[in-house]
Structure formats: C-alpha cells, structure tokens
Nucleic acid binder design. Structure first.
Lengths: 141, 141
DNA sequence: TTTTGTGCAAAAGGTTTGCATACGA
DNA sequence: TCGTATGCAAACCTTTTGCACAAAA
C-alpha cells in the first residue's frame, strides 16, 4: 500500500472518521478513478493489494464517506450503485445502450421546471437518459 | 374477473401478443391505477381475484407489454421497478424523502443540454430528483 | 481502555431462469 | 395441434445485518 497521506488522514478526522487502512484505500481508489466505479469494481481493485477489504467493509466505508460529504453516491436506475469523489453539484447523463455515465455541468432547472408542472421543488440532481453520441452514431437512431 | 374487453384483446393481438387472462389482468390493473405501481403491488392486487399470476408471469407480462409499447417501465434508482400505462413522452420527478413519483410534462432539453456539455444526445427522458412540495414544506429544507 | 471498524456468513429484496405443464389461436 | 405462456422453485445480484474479533484514538 502507498504511504498514507496525512492530508487525507486529517481530512478524515476533521469529518469525524477514523482513518482505517480500508477506508483510506477506498477513498484513494475513488480519487484515482473518477469514472463512477461500482462497489464491486472498487472492492476488486483494492483487493489486488494490501489491505484487503470485505464486501461489508467496502459498503461501510463508502457510506461513511458519503455521510461525511467526501464522496457522492450516483444511483442510476437498473444499475448497481456507483460512487465518485466529484462532490460539486452536477447532473448526470446515462446512456440507455452502453450504460456509460457522464457528468453534466450544473445548471438550475427551477425556472424551466415550473413551466412544466413541477411546483416549488428543490431539485438536487437531474439524470438525463438517452443515447450517448457514440451509440447514437453507431445506430442511426 | 371482469369480462374481457374485446378492444384490449384485439389491441394485444395487433401487437402480436396472445390475450391471456394474466396478461389482461396486469394491463387492466395499470389502466385503473396510473400511479406507477411496482411489480409486487401489481401481483398482490391481481391475486386478490381470478386469475392468479405467479411472480414470473407478472414479470413476463410486463416485459411483453413494454416490448409491445402498450406500457412504460419507470426505473427509479434505489427503488423496485415501476410501470405505467401513460405512454406519451414525459419526464419524471422523484422525491428523495417520500419516494413519491410524479409525471412531468414533456419538454425538450436538447437546447438547454447543449449549453451544459451534453453534445448531440438523443434524450429519452429526464428524471428530476429532489424534495417534493410536501416534504419541502414539512422540513423547511 | 473505550469505541468504532472489520470480516464472515447468512439473510433480505428484486429479478431472472429452466423446465414441465397448461392454454390460446 | 402447435407454439407460446404459465407456475414453481431455484439461482442470481446487490445490499444489509448480526456478531465476534481487531484496531484506532
């Protein structure tokens, strides 16, 4: 395992999280792999090195990090839950075909939404579903 | 069971679907309950009367009806899959707290989306996530 | 030393699958 | 009759839970 960054360790503590090797490995993995990995992807990856982490621990770690606001959960319908360390507000796009997930720059829907029957909601995130440019060009439609 | 509507029966046939009692019951239920029921809700409801349907059959029926374009699947992250017979294009809103799902009138995002880093996607649906008016007023935030 | 996290295995949903039987056309 | 749908039970996947043990502070 890499040496523990004291920055990360103290960031953990600042958020009331003990700095365990497993938790640290999970977070490190997310820092290095910003492509919305699933829980299994994370678990397999970190278990190629020390320390190893059980499934339950990976779930625990992820939830603790989400609670602390250090990472974000990306729940996509029909897919296993994914996680990212990109915590600024943003939206997501999911391709119906290849299931690729893309980050979409934040923009405010309130005004648009109001015109369309959503009244006074506080919108946390919007998920676009459709075909990505790749799949679109590959199929014509 | 209610008498079989020959309209529905012939609509099934027009779409290449045999008109089985179970399939019919599933479809009828969706017609009468437009509030995005889950598979279990549908199954329990139709099994209060004749004909009864097994879990597998309810899934089969729903998938066949979706294939045929007679109903729509509503996949919401973190929830069991739901179905509706409202097949015109529309969006959905999901409340983070009470999990209520609301239909949102269709509107075209392409223009808005382009400005925000989505390029040339064909958008099928947009899911808004946030707090519904109810939960918003109940909590202040 | 105290508290919190970890590992394991089992359980809990939701959904799919395989196969023998029943039923619609 | 032929081909497709149904029912059942088992399998599968993701996620949660309970509990004894280990590690952080």
């Amino acid at each position: 395992m890499n040496p523990i960054s004291s920055e990360i360790a103290s960031s953990f503590r600042r958020h009331g999280l003990r700095c365990t090797a497993q938790r640290y490995a999970v977070f490190q993995y997310l820092l290095k792999h910003p492509r919305h990995p699933t829980v299994e992807e994370i678990r397999k990856a970190i278990n190629r090195h020390d320390p190893r982490a059980s499934r339950a621990t990976v779930y625990n770690s992820l939830h603790a990090l989400v609670e602390a606001g250090l990472i974000r959960e990306v729940s996509i319908a029909g897919q296993a839950t994914r996680f990212e360390c990109h915590i600024e507000r943003h939206h997501h796009f999911v391709c119906d075909r290849c299931e690729r997930i893309e980050d979409v720059e934040w923009f405010d829907f309130e005004e648009i939404a109001k015109k369309s029957g959503i009244t006074s909601h506080s919108i946390r995130e919007v998920v676009f579903q459709g075909l990505c440019a790749n799949c679109l060009s590959r199929t014509g439609r």
